[in-house]
Every structure is written in structure tokens, then in C-alpha cells.
Amino acid sequence: MTVKLTNQKAWFLVAPVVVLVAFNAVIPLMTVVNYSVQESFGNNIFFWEGVKWFEEVLHSERFAASLMRQIFFTSVILLIEIPFGVAIALSMPRKGPWVSVCLVLMALPLLIPWNVVGAMWNIFSLPDIGLLGKALNSLGIGYDYTQEPISAWFTVILMDVWHWTSLVVLLAFAGLSSIPEAYYHAAKIDGASPWAIVRYIELPKMKRVLIIAFLLRFMDSFMIYTEPFVLTGGGPGNATTFLSIDLVKVALGQFDLGPAGAISLIYFLIILLTCWLFYTLTMKDEAQ
């Protein structure tokens, strides 16, 4: 006699995930794809347009400008937040009661909702009554983020660094705490300088978490919407109109669903491609 082979009931356990993914990702994405290849004049009437919207978006100066702003913004905050976060993590205590104090302090900005962060910095930076704005102006620096593009950029970047460097710090700290004590002992005995310890032990051992930190910060900052929207509303003029802000303007302001669908898909592909490229390139050595 033969015992019944495999239990097929297990498939039911996967069902909720399949449903969730369908509603969460597949169906919305398909809707966007659907819009991006059609023209609509309302009343639920659609015309097939093929890749027209894609061509139009790729040739539009407006899209190119907001994409450049987006790339510039993301590069600047990555260049600041990653080294700054690592530096803070390296200078944090590793043992003792101060560890938890530091960690809690670090986590505070992460707990504040995006729109509140925007509102906070909005008020904080106002040139007439905000602490930052008033202080800068009284130092003789002409600062007004509502009027002046450079001030606006400065504020948006400062806000993001304030809000998100902590994430890099926490990840880097987790990476640091997983380094066995023996590595430090060995390095001391080998006569390594403090910089050599950072360069040859701590940075290599943090590599994996830093890749994660980089990916998270890249994706989040590339899709940033709420904070600059609340702070500057994309202005002055279009100075801080990043991709997502522009996309919302196209989709909801102008109700151009076709071009908005095309922008969304191009946007999505840029993020996907960059993450994939970055991940494969950095993980190439690890695969062996």
C-alpha cells in the first residue's frame, strides 16, 4: 500500500497573498498602463493612442526639467545623508546606558508624519516669524524660501536631511554592532590605526546594510511628495517641482490621464532600473 503523497491543502494558505498582491499592485498598475495608451475626453470614452503619450512625455521640456530637479535633489541628499549617517553611527557609543538614549533620539524624526514635517519646517523657516528664517535674516543673509529658489532648495534639502539621516544612522549602527569583538582585538594587535579600522573592518562589514540604506533613501527621495508639497508647494515658480509633484499637477490639476499614465510608467521604470543596476553591481563580489 502507498501513503498519500503530498498535501495539496497548502495552496490555500497562499491564496490571501495572491489576492492582496492582485489588488495592491497588479490591478492599479494595469489601470495605469491602460490610461497611458489611450486618450479620454471624459464620459468614460477612450481612444487607442499607442505610444503617443510616451513620445510626447519623453520629448517634453517640462518632464525633462522636473526629472533633472529630481535627480539633483536625490543625489544631493544621498551625498549628504549616507556619509553623515555613517559618521554619526561611528561616533555613537557601542555599549552602556547611552546607547539606548542615542537610539531613541535618533529615531524621533522618523516617528513624525510627513505632512507634519512639512508643516513644521514651513513655520520654522518663515523669514518673519520662523526661528530659522528669522535667525538667518538677522545674520544678514537674505533668506526667503517662499520667494527665492536657492533658499527653497536649501530648506527642502535641510528638511530631508533632518528627517531621514536617522534611518541611515540606525541601519549603519545595526551593521556596526554585528561586528565581532575579535575583529577589533585583532586590528589593535596588528597595529592598525583608527582610520584603518574604519576603512578595512567597519566599512566592509557595513557594506550590506549601507546598500539597503542607499536603496531605501534613493527610492524614498525619488518619490518624495508630501514634505516639499506642504513646505513650498513646488515653488517658488517651479523651482522645487519634483517629478511626483509635477505628476500630480498633470494628473489631477490638468486631468490629463494619458500623459500622467505615461509619466507614471516611465517614473516607475527609472526607479526599478536604477535599483536593479545598483544592486547587481554592488553585489557582484558577494555572489562568489
Binding site: 500500500m1 502507498t2 501513503v3 503523497l5 503530498t6 498535501n7
Partner: peptide, 11 residues
């Protein structure tokens, strides 16, 4: 005396 080939470990 029973063929248990492929029977899951739980059984």
C-alpha cells in the same frame, strides 16, 4: 512493511 516513499515527515 509499508511503502512510505514521499510521505511527509509529519506522518
Amino acid at each position: 512493511g509499508k511503502n512510505v516513499t514521499g510521505a511527509p515527515v509529519q506522518k
